[in-house]
Amino acid sequence: MEYCHLCDGEAPLVTVPRTFEASGGPSVTINDTAYQCARCGEVFYGGGMMDESLRRVAAAVRVRDGLLGSEELVAVRESLRHTPARMSEILGVAEDLISKWEQGLFPQPAKVDRAYRRLRGEPDRLPKGVPRSREAA
């Protein structure tokens, strides 16, 4: 049993529908697991629970927006035999974003999703304006 940091009340683990504002579109609702104080109602996470909630929100946004799933992003990158660093170079984004998208923590923007789809369908072509590195040449 966890205890509330605000009032020291008992806080059992609960799974309830929660609505989140996400990625500039309509809100998404997920079944979210967290501790909720029986006395004051405070909701809080423990351990890796927040990451799991972020993954559920990102997955709901991907479904809502018709984006590739995180596993599909990994599959595209691996099929091209690129490292996350190379994908970040190709897409013009920070390498840590590639990791967060592939781990399912955040949904990729639609523009990035379209680039992944082009790369998946035509691996020898890069999105317009992306220079080839020495590694790819």
Rank of each mutant, 00 (worst) to 15 (best):
C4G: 05
H5I: 10
H5W: 12
E10A: 12
A11P: 02
L13N: 02
V14W: 00
V14K: 11
T15V: 10
V16D: 01
V16R: 08
E21A: 12
A22I: 07
P26K: 11
I30K: 03
N31A: 15
D32T: 07
Y35G: 01
Q36N: 04
A38G: 14
R39Q: 12
E42V: 07
V43Q: 10
G47C: 03
M49W: 09
M49H: 10
M50F: 13
E52M: 14
L54E: 15
R56H: 14
A58S: 15
A60T: 10
V61P: 05
R62M: 12
V63E: 15
D65T: 11
L67G: 04
L67A: 06
G69S: 15
E72F: 05
L73T: 06
L73F: 13
V74Y: 01
A75S: 12
A75F: 06
R77D: 01
S79D: 09
L80A: 06
L80V: 03
H82L: 15
T83K: 04
A85W: 03
M87Y: 06
M87E: 09
S88K: 12
E89A: 14
L91K: 13
G92M: 11
G92N: 11
L97V: 04
Q103A: 14
G104W: 04
G104N: 06
G104S: 10
A110H: 09
D113V: 13
R114C: 01
A115F: 12
Y116S: 06
R117G: 01
R117T: 01
R117M: 01
R118M: 14
G121L: 12
G121R: 14
D124T: 12
D124G: 09
D124N: 11
K128P: 09
G129K: 09
P131Q: 08
S133T: 15
R134D: 11
A136L: 13
A136P: 00
